[in-house]
Every structure is written in structure tokens, then in C-alpha cells.
Design a protein around this nucleic acid. Structure first.
Length: 258
DNA sequence: AATACCGTCAACCGCTGGACA
DNA sequence: CTGTCCAGCGGTTGACGGTAT
């Protein structure tokens, strides 16, 4: 296993623990001036008695200029809960959906605050299901359709167009979303089709840059099938996906927004 | 006033997987 | 194919401040 800990090559004594303002300044100035490059060489070049790993962490979690400071908003909180239900403890993927927030920050917030809040609401933070019900039963009983996302519409559909939404009651790209292995995908673009037979789409993951081609995607339920017959409604929407989706999700699933 | 307890958060540790020689 | 290096990830730890006893 080729891994290196900060302790494994103690040629010189490396500092540990909290960072001093002077160290912060050195690291910040170095990265602003020269960029990151190779983290293992950063401490030497920046004149720091730290390991590269420690520098990387300090930059990512504290010094980066694009970090959002302060407490989490209600919207952010709801989004974290939704994403956690979908992704589990994949903090970096969750963080990628919250600009300016770090995985560490979200993880701490979840462990110190959100878990407790959910329990107070009678929700098991591990399963996102009500506490007290027959757990074994709820585990084994297959839900009608999995709810893959739930939350305010602007969080369920991160890039939605507010004006369109106000006018139509649905996100502009309703019908341009899907799931693959329980991950939400946002289609980059698609050829509009007003019939119910499905369409061919190019799509990309919300959390990455992967581009997939799916044979067909059909959305059913609550009138959101095509432009000609959709009735804008909030609530749970059942969509159906089929065809070759690179081994991804196949079947019905629910998306709830409000 | 002292101290025990608790919550929060920054930082560390160990592991994994990708890149490369 | 194998070994090494490295970045990144998630779990854990420890310091610190606030509150309760």
C-alpha cells in the first residue's frame, strides 16, 4: 500500500495542531502567488514546518477564498438532508452540491446538529425513515417506488430557471432529469419530444462531468409526461426510465418537490 | 467559584484508488 | 505486472468554549 503519513518521514520536526496566523499567511501567499502544484512540495516552498497533507487540508477547509462562512441556511440544511438520504456519508459529493461549503464542514454539521434534529423529528438519520416503526419490516418491504429526491424545488433541481418556474410551476427542464444508480442526473440538453414514446437525450451527472447516452427516457405520472399534457403540480412525481442506461437505474422512482 | 459535562469544529489518521515509472 | 507516490476521502480525535450542577 503506497501511502504516506505525515509521521512516516520525520526528517525534520513537523508542526502539528492548530495553525497560527503566520502559518496561514505563508500558505495563503504561496498558493495565491504560485498555485498549488504538488502538495508535498508546498510546505518546503512556502517555508512551513508542516506536511503537505496538513497544508492541503488547511487550504481546502479554511483558507480558500471561495469559502462561504457562517452558519448553514435552512435551504442548505434541507439540501444536505436530501442528499444524505440519496448518497449516504459521501461528504465530498454532498459538498460538491453546496458551493462554498467543504466536506468537513458538512460532516461536522451533520454529526453535531442535523442528526439530532432528525431524531427530534422522529426520523432515523441513518435510514431517513420514521423511528419506531418495525425496522425489519421497513427494510424488507419494498417500497412502491423509491423516493430519490425530496425538497424545495430549487434544491431538487439545482439549476432551475426561477422565471420559468414561476410561470409554469415546474422546473424548465422537467423531463430533463433522471437517475442512474440512485444518483440524480441532469441532462445537458435533449431533443424535445412531445409524444409519450420517449426521447433520446444526452445527459451529464450533477456531481460530475460524465456524459452518458441513454436510449430512452419516459416520464410518467401527475401529467408530466410531455409538454402537451402536463399539469404543473407539486408533490410526488413518479417517473419511469427504461432502455440502456449504462447499467444504471431502470424502473419507476419518485421525485418530490414543493 | 469550581468542575463536570456537552457540543462544535479544526485537524489528524489511515485507507483507497489513480497515475506513473 | 508490481511498486511507489500522491491526492482525496471518511472516520476519529482533541482542543476549546459554553452551560449545568
Amino acid at each position: 500500500m503506497g501511502h504516506q503519513s505525515c509521521n512516516s518521514a520525520p526528517k525534520q520536526k513537523l508542526r502539528k495542531g492548530l495553525w497560527s496566523p503566520e502559518e496561514d499567511e505563508k500558505l495563503y501567499n504561496h498558493i495565491i502567488r504560485y498555485g498549488v502544484g504538488c502538495w508535498s512540495s508546498v510546505p518546503k516552498l512556502a517555508g512551513l514546518q508542516r506536511c503537505g497533507k496538513s497544508c492541503r487540508l488547511r487550504w481546502i477547509n479554511y483558507l480558500r477564498p471561495d469559502l462561504k462562512r457562517g452558519s448553514f441556511s435552512q435551504q442548505e440544511e434541507d439540501l444536505i438532508v436530501s442528499l444524505h438520504e440519496m448518497l449516504g456519508n459521501r461528504w465530498s459529493q454532498i459538498a460538491s452540491q453546496l458551493p462554498g461549503r467543504t466536506d468537513n464542514e458538512i460532516k461536522n454539521f451533520w454529526n453535531s446538529s442535523l442528526k439530532k434534529k432528525l431524531r427530534q423529528r422522529g426520523i432515523d438519520p441513518a435510514t431517513h425513515k420514521p423511528i419506531g416503526g418495525d425496522a425489519s419490516e421497513s427494510q424488507e418491504e419494498k417500497p412502491d417506488n423509491p423516493t430519490i429526491l425530496s425538497g424545495p424545488v430549487d434544491q431538487v433541481f439545482p439549476n432551475f430557471d426561477q422565471q420559468y418556474f414561476t410561470e409554469h410551476g415546474v422546473p424548465p427542464s422537467m423531463g430533463f432529469y433522471g437517475v442512474n444508480n440512485s444518483e440524480l442526473y441532469e441532462y445537458g440538453y435533449g431533443e424535445s419530444s412531445s409524444n409519450s414514446g420517449g426521447s433520446n437525450w444526452n445527459c451529464s451527472s450533477v456531481s460530475g462531468n460524465e456524459v452518458l447516452n441513454w436510449d430512452s427516457v419516459t416520464h410518467i405520472g401527475n401529467g408530466i409526461l410531455s409538454e402537451e399534457n402536463f399539469e404543473p403540480k407539486f408533490g410526488v412525481h413518479t417517473w419511469q426510465e427504461h432502455g440502456d442506461m449504462n447499467g444504471g437505474f431502470e424502473g419507476d422512482f419518485n421525485v418530490e418537490f414543493f
